[in-house]
Design a protein around this nucleic acid. Sequence first.
DNA 1: TAGATTGTTAATCGATTAACAATC
DNA 2: TAGATTGTTAATCGATTAACAATC
Lengths: 219, 219
Amino acid sequence: MKYRISANVIRRLPRYLRRLTGMERAGEERTSSRDLSSAMGLTASQIRQDLNCFGGFGQQGYGYRVRELREGIAAVLGIGETLRAVVVGVGNLGRALLANFRFDECGVEVTAAFDADPALIGRRVSEVPILESDALEGYLKENPVDVIVLTLPRKFVKDVSELAARNGVRGIWNFTGSDIDADLGDTIVENVHLSDSLLTLGYYLRGRTSENQSHKEET
Amino acid sequence: MKYRISANVIRRLPRYLRRLTGMERAGEERTSSRDLSSAMGLTASQIRQDLNCFGGFGQQGYGYRVRELREGIAAVLGIGETLRAVVVGVGNLGRALLANFRFDECGVEVTAAFDADPALIGRRVSEVPILESDALEGYLKENPVDVIVLTLPRKFVKDVSELAARNGVRGIWNFTGSDIDADLGDTIVENVHLSDSLLTLGYYLRGRTSENQSHKEET
DNA sequence: TAGATTGTTAATCGATTAACAATC
DNA sequence: TAGATTGTTAATCGATTAACAATC
């Protein structure tokens, strides 16, 4: 087991997990670094290195048991230990996440959502109650909340982030598209910058015309 | 100007762009690698290296003109050359993107959206007309479409992707959460795997309890 | 001119790949 | 046993950082 796992490795774990979950659903019981390698576009060597950061999931001469490996990675990611989250901003995007995103598969439970629109207050989306946004601070003080999901307009980002960090929130999943420029102590921000993703795609597409590059990438 | 620009550099360009756009709005005219460095959490050295992949935006002894640099990066990303896109799937997420996402700022124009729900056909979201999903192939044949935005249920992903690739679509912006396992020729897939992002955040949050690591990251 | 900051080369560091002994 | 594939060490490659001459 390595001293410190690099962020590159961590960011590949969800991909392994996804692949393995798919294999398990398809009834595959056994795999190998070579097998995963061809399916995922990584080298077999890298896969073995990655998996070995967390101890021996495999068996020499045999490979890996799909289920065991999936469970192992899920455990490393800590999916079994549920995190509590609230969604702040129930516009189209907040609703899209509440309605369609499988928080549970990430080991996250959404306990409430907040919005300023009186028409939404008291309603529920996928069981989750929508509360008045003024009630957020009180809610955070009364309930254990690990993560806030920011799906509100940019102008509120700074205040809400600081409020959350002050009230025990340790992680911010930020969909606002703006970077959070605030003093949050050791609260972690994970940005989902959709424009970064689209701009990157655009770069490679436009490059095609003149240079005809080849590329396949992951966000 | 370097022979081949690494993906790492390309993925930082949108961040530079975002920062510079903010500075420009705030009326700042001048900056330097050191200035950007402290604001963005990169080393000044790396910033100079990155920017130099695309030629001399700066001026010795002075630094960079914010506007000039922003325009330069926007040009590298090709934002001026508009790409045509269609959104396939007008559920919550499709609507969220159509209603709130600034495609224009990425140099992308959405010309149509497609859905199977008869109740939606003929309506518009942010000017964009919603068409019958059966009409997609015909539309692609008649109109130049560079990118499809996939915001539909997973089970349709494979067929729609292949159909698109066959009909001249060069890029797929994939929000379905599943990897696209299909023969797409040289069509580029850019995945937005939200679960990867949340799982990564979760990993670092849970790690906190036992190890108290420090971390700040970007998707 | 003196001070500042780039562009760029060289040094370091870390991540990926290759190789192979261990072993199932 | 022979064949396969891991775990792991060593080699390579690339990315980041440091240093500094060029020059505004």
